[in-house]
């Protein structure tokens, strides 16, 4: 039983660690990518993968009590609002006329 709990703790640490790495990768992608449309996808790595892994790790670490419920609530809320705000940004940019880059060596075709 004790070994099982220790194993669960190790899984929680791995989840938290890899969630942190995913968040960094998302931020790095949003810094590296050449134009707005590709940056949207990099930000969505943080919104889905990083959030799932970090909240899952914290939930396993805390055991099963009211804290787990709060983490679940935060997770569900971020899962509904994250895509909604991504879609809102994308739709506003599309309506304002920012088009995706065809060639990746070209400067972004942005009209100010």
């Amino acid at each position: 039983m004790n070994i099982f709990l220790d194993l669960l703790q190790v899984i929680a640490w791995i989840c938290i660690f890899s969630g942190g790495i995913l968040v960094i990768i998302g931020a790095l992608g949003s810094l590296r990518f050449p134009d707005f449309w590709s940056r949207l996808h990099a930000a969505s790595v943080t919104d889905s993968g990083g959030v799932i892994l970090l909240l899952l790790g914290m939930g396993i670490h805390s055991g099963f009590n009211l804290i787990t419920f709060k983490l679940l609530l935060i997770g569900v809320f971020l899962f509904i609002t994250g895509p909604t705000s991504s879609h809102a940004v994308a739709n506003a940019a599309w309506v304002s006329g920012i088009k995706p880059l065809r060639n990746k060596h070209k400067k972004p075709g942005i009209d100010k």
């Binding site: 998302g26 707005f36 940056r39 943080t46």
Partner: peptide, 8 residues
């Protein structure tokens, strides 16, 4: 976009 991602 980056403000939103900073918030998350």
């Amino acid at each position: 976009l980056s403000t939103n991602s900073f918030g998350t």
